[in-house]
Simulated assay, not measured.
Amino acid sequence: MDVLDDRALNRATLARQLLLDRAARPAREVVEHLVGLQAQEPLEPYVGLWSRIAGFAPTELVTLLHERTVVRTHLQRRTIHLLTAADALALRSLFQPMLVQRMYTTLSRVLPGVDLAELAAAGRPHLHAEPLRLPDAARRIADRWPQVKVRDLADALGSVVELVQVPPRGVWGSGSTPTALPAAYTTMEAWLGRAPDREPADAGELILRYLRAYGPASSADVRAWSGLTGLPEVLKRIRPQLRIFRDARGRELLDVPDAPLPHPDTPAPPRFLPAFDNAVLGYSDRRRIIDDEHRNLSAAGERVLLVDGRVAATWTSDAEGVTVHPLRRLSAAERADVEREGHALAAFLAEGAPAAVRFAG
Results as ranks from 00 to 15, higher is better:
D291E: 15
Q241K: 15
A313Q: 05
L231P: 01
P264G: 00
L254W: 09
L208S: 11
V307F: 04
A332D: 13
S284Y: 07
A259C: 11
I289V: 13
V280W: 00
R286V: 03
L211Q: 04
A259L: 14
L211R: 05
N278V: 01
V307A: 07
V234F: 13
S317P: 04
R246L: 06
S218D: 08
L253E: 07
L254P: 06
T314V: 12
A332P: 04
P260G: 07
A299D: 09
P326D: 02
V322M: 04
D285T: 05
D255T: 08
V280M: 05
D277A: 02
R246F: 06
T316V: 11
D221C: 04
V234Y: 13
A275N: 04
R212K: 13
D247N: 15
R249L: 15
I290G: 01
W315L: 11
I290V: 15
G230V: 04
L281Q: 03
E320L: 13
L297D: 05
L235V: 14
E320K: 10
L305C: 03
S284I: 00
T266H: 07
D265A: 13
L211K: 07
A300S: 15
G230L: 03
H294M: 11
A213S: 15
P267R: 03
P262T: 13
A259P: 15
R251N: 14
G321R: 02
D221F: 07
K236E: 14
G230I: 03
E233M: 14
P216C: 09
E233L: 14
L273Y: 02
A333D: 15
R251V: 12
R310P: 01
T316P: 02
L208I: 13
D308F: 06
R243W: 11
W315S: 08
R295T: 10
R251P: 00
V222P: 04
A312T: 01
A220D: 15
G227R: 06
S226I: 12
L306Q: 02
R271V: 06
L330T: 05
S226M: 09
D292P: 00
A313T: 08
P216L: 06
R249W: 08
E293K: 10
G282C: 02
L327K: 09
S317L: 02
D247I: 03
V304Y: 02
E293V: 12
V307D: 04
P232Q: 11
P260H: 14
T314Y: 03
R243Y: 12
T323V: 06
R271T: 01
P262A: 07
I290Q: 02
G227F: 08
P260D: 12
Y214A: 01
D277W: 03
D292M: 12
F276P: 02
A217Q: 06
A279F: 01
R246K: 12
V280A: 04
V322A: 04
D221W: 07
D318R: 09
G282S: 07
L211C: 03
A312C: 10
A299F: 13
D277Q: 01
G215C: 11
L281C: 05
L305A: 07
